[in-house]
Amino acid sequence: MQIVKLPKENLDKFMGGLSKFGEIHAPIKKDENTYLFSKIEDLSKIELNYNRTILPPKKYFLPPNETMFRFSPEKGYEPPQDNLNKKYVLLGVHSCDIHGLKILDLVFSGTYVDNYYFTRRKNTSIIGVSCIPDDMCFCRSMETDFVEDGFDLFLSDIDDSYLVRIATSLGDDMVRANQSLFKEVDKEDIAEYKRKSNERKNYFKIDLELYNLPEIMDLEYESKIWEEIGEKCLSCGTCSMVCPTCYCYDVFDQLNLDGKTGERRRQWDSCLFKDYALVAGGLNFRSERSARVKNRYFHKQRGFVAQYGRPSCVGCGRCIQSCPAKIDIVEVMTKIRSASYE
């Protein structure tokens, strides 16, 4: 992979030049300790040193709410003429979130390809940025602390400059469009990069041991820990909304006031909601909160492994930061592993 160097004093110029590749969206500061991906009007608002955004980048590809069809009694369901082809540049995406998108790609591809998702995916370029983990990050445990692909460019901070990995032809165009801003990587840069990435390992405060976790989860299927979490869980849906890999959605027909025409919409859903597994007639396959909590953990750490070969958790720490009941996935998994826990 080609790697070049972008001195930080050239960063603004480089970012300014990106607008011809699409509408720029990047992290901005929302509050003291909260950030979000937002449309950028003013480059100085971009915050590349951030811990995590409230919602992950999935919101750009699987919007929280979207119109799938417009309907009428005569014509049935017709796809909206909205322009899914608008170009975006998503700048400042962390490694864990890029892995999150790669996991969503697995779900929305396969035998049945979801074009709403993939059209947006194709029209959005991704520029990754390195990060310093905080005390809720456990991407290293989930093997998502580095990323090999799934981006066009990736910026790694080496103090005065960024090392820029060029992964796609589009990424190469972005660099060439402002070639004069970039320099060649020298030996000192390489040394600094190695020093930085070695140092980064030491920042991790929490660890989720993956080794034989699926087997342990099978063994602990009847564990009373699920009841305990069920007691604390509020079923508020927060963890699902903020999760970069939770993809469940609900679909409904929303009528106009004429009671005839309207839109078929989909919106994010959560397996923790009481009516999630409810079928017509009132039979609910997971009416107990503890069963729903268990299902969520099993799907992330066990079911997804069986389906796709890896857990669907990327260790971004969002659910840990935002759960009002302080349910902490790393604590839960550690508890379940511990031999003394019954």
Binding site: V107, F108, G110, T111, Y112, D114, Y247, C248, Y249, D250, V251, R266, D269, C271, Y276, A277, L278, V279, F285, N295, F298, H299, R302, G303, A306, Q307
Partner: peptide, 16 residues
């Protein structure tokens, strides 16, 4: 609850 029918929406999951 097979809502989407195509393995995306999640509602009909049983175990894995």
């Amino acid at each position: 609850r097979m809502k989407c029918g195509v393995g995306k929406c999640g509602h009909c999951s049983i175990g894995y």
